[in-house]
């Protein structure tokens, strides 16, 4: 599955969590996923679960600060760990 496809699917999922105007645009431009008020702790867990289901990849909770640093880091992680199944 291509990087662009993974990125698009991530953005679709993030869109249901980043509910304030402009947040999704900022993520697409490289902002950290950890910096938004829309993502409280429970939303973060929900987001992780949605991503895991979508890509059939278990995200390591200890690495979330790195994985969710940006959309690029998330996309890279999913591409490397999905084993082509994504």
């Amino acid at each position: 599955m291509s990087t662009n496809n993974i990125r698009a699917r991530c953005l679709a999922i993030l869109g249901s969590f980043l509910v304030n105007p402009g947040e999704l645009e900022k993520v697409n431009q490289g902002a950290s996923l950890l910096d938004f008020s829309s993502l409280d702790s429970l939303s973060m867990v929900n987001l992780v679960v949605q991503l895991e289901i979508e890509f059939a990849v278990r995200l390591d909770a200890d690495e979330l600060d790195t994985v969710l640093a940006t959309l690029d880091s998330l996309t890279d992680y999913l591409e490397k760990n999905s084993g082509g199944q994504a």
Partner: peptide, 11 residues
């Protein structure tokens, strides 16, 4: 409830 709900549908 959110924990039960998420455990019921997580990967």
């Amino acid at each position: 409830p959110p924990i039960i709900e998420l455990l019921g549908r997580c990967l």
